[in-house]
Design a protein around this nucleic acid. Structure first.
Lengths: 197, 197
DNA sequence: GTCTATATGTTGATAGAC
DNA sequence: GTCTATCAACATATAGAC
């Protein structure tokens, strides 16, 4: 019996996966407990309510998103940062087509009546939009706010439709089209790429 | 007491609104019955299961979508048909920002385990994609399939993000940006518009 | 066709032994 | 900290009077 149990992490991890695959409301505590191999009653030692588990999941996703975005920025020009993000998503195109965007899906499921939890999830999406906007701003583009919104909305739309139509190939192809669109925003980009090669 | 009751229609209408606002799983039969002012037990005279109500809602939405698309096409060139569709959405930007897309939201909520119901909902989205693709094809554009997917995914993304960020103004502005994008696909379009004016 | 009452099953949450 | 047993609330669905 380990002094420091990993049950809490297992529960969050299980909830994360299940909420992604089935959504928050369809996922029961029994589902989570079973997936995490933790007895149902024991769940309440770690989390006061089901909502609390979800909040922990969102917190972890926000951290994970933050790490990903920082990693995209590292040693990269703003446009390349955006491209890096798309590359990451292309790498996950199969899961995205399978279960949609973990962030977008959850945000849509939650509404005002979910209170704090919705704010928590929505703030992740805002974070992504703000980050994207900042990249466009750093690129010196006018209307960076519009572009940031457009960038994220295009990605979200592609994932949503790729999921609904269950078409990872098209999802991937359309993510590339978004990347292509970005390069066209900076006329010099292609020449720079060629020069660097 | 009317010989032909409108209870069935009231139930579908109530379910339609509630599913749009709250989603399918969060909406209970009691909610629907109350909104439709029909006693709970009586619901089962009209629908065998909750799933059946949702199927009726989807069927109605599909019919409504079909009417809308036909109306967009009537007396219009393919590009104008696409523009008409966007105009309709712009007219609904407030509700779309409030509760998201009735079609996209439901499709995302349902997955393989929902069986027939998911197929039903997804077929609506496919229908929209196919219609859009057909417009691009009629415009004589290469890669009409890619464009059809891109068109719908952009609209879905804009609605999703407009809903999450609760920003009807930006939603409207971004729908216009999609319209702008379409016009740029046909270099002659603007001149034609000007000539027609 | 309509409605009340209720069966049946599931879910989130708790109590309390260990 | 852990786990079993169970509660209370709610949801879908049914039975049966009218």
């Amino acid at each position: 019996m380990p002094r420091i149990s990993d049950k809490r992490e297992r529960l969050i991890s299980a909830a994360d996966a299940l909420i992604h695959r089935q959504g928050f409301y369809r996922t029961t505590l029994a589902d989570i407990a079973e997936e995490a191999k933790v007895p149902l009653g024991n769940v309440y030692y770690y989390f006061k309510t089901k909502e609390d588990i979800c909040k922990a999941v969102v917190t972890e996703r926000k951290q994970s998103l933050s790490n990903m975005l920082k990693s995209c920025c590292r040693r990269s020009e703003p446009m390349d940062a955006l491209m890096n993000l798309i590359k990451v998503m292309i790498g996950h195109s199969r899961e995205l087509a399978e279960s949609g965007c973990p962030l977008g899906g959850l945000c849509q499921e939650l509404d005002e009546e979910c209170g704090e939890l919705m704010d928590c999830a929505d703030s992740c999406m805002k974070y992504l939009v703000d980050w994207s906007t900042e990249q466009f701003r750093l690129m010196g583009l006018k209307q960076a706010e519009e572009l940031g919104f457009e960038f994220v909305s295009r990605i979200q739309g592609v994932i949503l439709l790729g999921n609904i139509l269950n078409d990872p190939r098209r999802l991937k192809q359309q993510l590339k089209a978004v990347a292509e669109w970005i390069t066209e925003l900076d006329p010099d980009y292609r020449e720079e790429e060629r020069a660097a090669a």
